[in-house]
Design a protein around this nucleic acid. Structure first.
Length: 716
DNA sequence: TTAGGGTTAG
């Protein structure tokens, strides 16, 4: 390059030829010029270069020129707006802010750009600070400012300030005339949970568009005002506004919550027609809708059509399958997701864990715990609650507690889960201590809290305490449901306070079958035939042929020796084609689940060994005092046959199998019905004989058998 | 040169 005192101009002309060239080329030439030429000495040289750098939003170039200009003492007369703009676009917020702060006057666009940058990067506090500075500098915000800043207010929960700015938007006429401002306001009120206000804003906006209406639908959907969401969707169609993938995504969730398949299918059709059925977000909602409506097959078909399911899609599938009682399939899908290298998040993990806890799959759950740890969700409240639930439902309250103590945030749900775990495992005192702590923390109790407290009292036999709690809950904020009453009825009923229990049922506005059946089962325990018959009539009026009631009656007649009535009941049941569901037990040995059915002695491949071991165990148990309790046999048969029938209960078979396989550790049994008195006393003795803990989860609660006694203290 | 909405959970 030629250097003379005209050098600057020569450089300029050369540079001009670079203007049309591509960015990369320009930049490398620029660097060369910086190194090779000391001709950057006139403003003529700087200006075009600077313009090019700005056009290319190339901050390092700008900075170099600025440094040069400073070096040669040229005044910097640059447009601050441009520099801020370039700074923001290059992500150099420090630089942009520096320039911004030095500007004596700022264009409104510059204010807006800075606010928008902070909001985009979720730095709401700084956005609001700039906005406040704007107001105190007497710069009037415009539609761009307001449509941005409302998001920051909702993010920070600044309701009062938000209302003042809303007032400003009204004064400026922007609330009505600018749909961006309107949408931002709707979105903000939705995030504050104020759908009524959001709707009022929407109604005032002159020209409604898809985003505005969708924001409101989202609000309704997220707040559980699902019927309103569907209504808003309909009126949107009526007004001729075309929904898009976001709209479909939200309204479908509401259809799912309403279990309104017909609407859901209609909307599915609209989606296909308008071509929005291939967007992942709306596909995921479609999947969720079908799952919440219980149409598992349809949802699997939808899932199959999704080419690249993401984390959310997988989670939706897994949680939906668990919701529909398809835990095994949910876990298979969970494993498939991991194989496809899609990372789970805390939602996914908690869904997977719930699948395990429903089936008390301890080993499988432990493996997911490993994944929870691997991805760093150990202290997360969602995954954590899943773990607490798992360990609670597997009978390991200690492990549940250690997860609970490690959480980085305790909320109502995690405390509830922990309390419920204690309650199920008969650790009532621990549950109540936690309840007290929760009150001290100022956490608001909800319906699950109330249920956990009552269940804790029920399962631990704290009847008087339970009644006291119940009375105070009645005066509290939580609306009591039939479930709460059922728990109390069970508690009073089991304690033999049948009249009180019946009075309580009569106090309920809409007593359901569960309540009456609970009372009936208390009659069975206390062998109150007269009251039971009265209740049976009532239940059969409500639900002719109710299986639960008939079985309870038949067992009650059997336990009071009224065999003729038993035969009558059984033939009635046969007439109605009702069959008692078979008693089943499941036991996990070496990560495999084995199923046993009462009375089924031959279908297991190891039947011979199982029966041998069982005989051995019964013999040993008898030596230390086990005597069959034949009152548990609800069939009229000879005494020896009764004994045989008792020996064939599914949990006895399952335990014998586990003992034969001699896998270490505790024996974990899951049962579909409740444990009978005979098995209960037998297992107590066996736990001492074999010196192993046996944990049995029946349909209602846990029994931890250890060294001859059970955690339920024989009260269940 | 500046602006708005979604899908998964206990």
């Amino acid at each position: 390059m030629r250097r003379d005192h005209y050098g600057g101009l020569i450089v300029v002309s050369r540079i001009s030829s670079f203007f049309s060239s591509k960015a990369g080329n320009f930049r490398s030439q620029f660097r060369l010029l910086c190194i090779a030429s000391n001709s950057f000495t006139t403003t003529h040289t700087f200006s075009p270069l600077l313009r090019q750098c700005i056009d290319e939003r190339w901050l390092p170039g700008i900075k170099t020129i600025q440094a040069q200009m400073l070096k040669y003492g040229f005044p910097i007369q640059l447009s601050g707006s441009k520099l801020v703009d370039v700074g923001l676009k290059c992500g150099e917020i420090g630089y942009a802010r520096e320039v911004f702060d030095e500007m004596p006057e700022r264009h409104i666009v510059t204010w807006n750009s800075l606010i928008a940058y902070f909001i985009k990067h979720r730095r709401s506090k700084e956005a609001v600070e700039v906005y406040r500075l704007m107001i105190t500098s007497n710069v009037s915000p415009d539609e761009y400012t307001l449509s941005s800043v409302f998001k920051a207010f909702s993010d920070l929960g600044f309701e009062k300030e938000a209302q003042r700015s809303h007032g400003l938007a009204v004064v400026l006429g922007l609330e009505v005339s600018n749909v961006f401002v309107g949408s931002a306001l709707v979105d903000m009120y939705v995030k504050f949970g104020k759908t009524r206000e959001a709707k009022l804003v929407l109604d005032r906006v002159e020209e409604k568009d898809v985003v505005l209406i969708t924001a409101l639908i989202v609000g309704y959907s997220q707040k559980g005002e699902d019927a309103e969401a569907v209504k808003a969707f309909r009126s949107m169609l009526g007004e001729g506004v075309q929904p898009n993938e976001y709209t479909y995504a939200s309204v479908l969730i509401s259809c799912g919550n309403l279990k309104n398949v017909s609407n859901g299918k209609l909307i599915h059709g609209l989606m296909i027609k308008s071509g929005f059925d291939s967007a992942l977000g709306s596909q995921t909602s479609l999947l969720t809708m079908y799952l919440r409506c219980g149409l598992v097959d349809d949802s699997l078909w939808i899932f199959k059509c999704i080419e690249y399911p993401n984390q959310v899609t997988w989670t939706s599938l897994i949680s939906g399958l668990v919701l529909n009682g398809r835990e095994e399939m949910a876990l298979t899908e969970f494993r498939k997701m991991m194989r496809d290298s899609v990372k789970p998040n805390s939602f996914t993990l908690s869904s997977g864990l719930r699948g395990c806890s429903n089936l008390a799959m301890f080993e499988e759950g432990r493996q997911i715990h490993g994944i929870v740890t691997k991805y760093g969700f150990d202290r997360d409240k969602y995954a954590g609650s899943g773990l607490i639930d798992l360990y609670g439902k597997c009978g390991c309250s200690d492990m549940a507690r250690s997860v609970f103590d490690g959480l980085n945030e305790v909320d109502v749900i995690s405390v509830n889960t922990m309390m419920y775990s204690y309650a199920q495992n008969g650790l009532g005192r621990e549950a109540l201590e936690l309840f007290e702590r929760m009150m001290n923390l100022g956490l608001q109790a909800n319906d699950v809290t109330v249920l956990s407290v009552l269940l804790a009292c029920n399962n631990s036999g704290f009847v008087d305490e339970g009644c006291e709690f119940f009375e105070s809950f009645r005066k509290g904020k939580v609306v009591l449901t039939n479930d709460h009453y059922a728990c109390m009825v069970d508690m009073l009923g089991r304690a033999g306070r049948l009249d009180e229990a019946e009075r309580l049922v009569n106090e309920v506005v809409n007593p359901d079958l569960v309540l009456w059946r609970t009372l009936l089962s208390a009659c069975k325990i206390h062998r109150n035939v007269e009251m039971a018959e009265r209740l049976k009539r009532k239940i059969l009026e409500m639900a002719p042929g109710d299986e639960g009631a008939l079985i309870l009656m038949s067992n009650l007649y059997a336990s009071t020796g009224k065999w003729n009535r038993v035969i009558e009941m059984k033939s009635d049941m046969r007439g109605m084609k009702l069959k008692k569901s078979p008693a089943m037990s499941w036991v996990d040995v070496d990560r495999e689940t084995h199923t046993f059915m009462a009375g089924d002695l031959f279908s297991h491949p190891n039947s011979e060994q199982i029966l041998e071991t069982l005989e051995e165990l019964i013999k040993k148990a008898k030596k230390v005092g086990y005597v069959e309790d034949k009152s548990c046999v609800f069939q009229d048969m000879e005494e020896s046959a009764k004994e045989r029938s008792l020996h064939q209960h599914s949990e006895k078979l399952a335990i014998a199998f586990a003992v034969w396989r001699n896998a270490g550790g505790s024996i974990r049994i899951l049962k579909n019905l409740r444990v009978c008195v005979d098995c209960h006393s037998w297992i107590k003795i066996v736990s001492r004989v074999i010196k192993r803990e046996i944990i049995c989860r029946d349909s209602k609660r846990f029994h931890h058998f250890r060294d001859g006694s059970c955690s339920c203290r024989d009260y269940w």
